[in-house]
Simulated scan of single mutants.
Amino acid sequence: MEVETNRFGYDLIRNDVLRDLLGKDHDTILYWIGKSLARKYPVPTVEEMITFFEEANWGTLARIKEKKQEQLFELTGEWMNKSDQRCYQLEAGFLAQQVETWNNCISGATYTEKNGLILIKIETDKKDTIK
């Protein structure tokens, strides 16, 4: 029961409090908070990022495609496809910043919901290096 209680509290803050507090800028701010968190909690490998997501209760992460300038991640969680209405900009921003740090090139992320899971696409501009 403790896990459910913790999830309930987390969901209240994530889905209700933050949305009310941030208003129309909610999604954009969460994306940039995700990037900021990635700078505070850098992870050097995909495997460690997967572990970070599990420990943060953000869900189960898997990289399902990797190309030269694009990576596709799949995020699943037991709460998905139910009454949960969260956006996943926090996770998208976090992933974008980690990939940006790994490649030393500007990276951005977008996500889509499909069949009860979240697909997060990270695009990296290899010509736009970080100085």
Rank of each mutant, 00 (worst) to 15 (best):
G23F: 00
V46F: 03
Y31K: 04
L21S: 06
P44W: 08
W32Q: 10
V17Q: 01
L30V: 00
V43G: 05
K40R: 15
L30R: 04
R39M: 09
P42S: 01
V43Q: 15
L18D: 08
D16I: 15
L37R: 02
H26Q: 13
P42Q: 00
I50T: 06
M49I: 05
L22I: 02
G34F: 01
W32E: 14
K35F: 06
K35R: 15
T45D: 01
L18H: 07
W32G: 02
L22S: 04
K35A: 11
I33K: 10
V46D: 09
D20C: 15
I29S: 02
I13E: 08
I33W: 07
K40Y: 07
T45V: 05
L22G: 11
M49E: 12
Y41C: 01
L30C: 04
R14C: 12
G23R: 05
M49F: 06
Y41D: 07
D25C: 01
L18P: 10
N15L: 09
E47P: 02
L22W: 10
V17P: 00
D25P: 01
G23N: 11
S36M: 05
K35L: 04
K35I: 08
T45K: 02
V17L: 13
N15W: 04
A38F: 06
V46G: 03
V43Y: 14
Y41V: 10
G34N: 08
G34C: 04
G34S: 03
R19M: 01
D20L: 13
P44C: 01
H26P: 03
R39K: 13
E48K: 14
K40F: 01
E48G: 02
Y41R: 10
Y31P: 05
W32S: 02
I29N: 00
L18M: 12
L37A: 08
L21R: 11
E47M: 00
M49T: 15
G34R: 03
D20K: 15
P42K: 01
I29M: 01
V43S: 11
M49D: 10
S36R: 04
T45I: 05
A38S: 04
I13T: 13
D20M: 14
L21A: 14
I33T: 14
P44R: 10
P42D: 06
I50L: 02
P44S: 08
N15G: 14
I33H: 12
I13Y: 11
P42I: 06
G23P: 03
L22V: 06
E48P: 00
E47S: 12
L21E: 07
R39W: 04
P44E: 13
V46K: 05
E48A: 12
W32T: 09
E47L: 10
E47F: 09
D20T: 11
N15V: 05
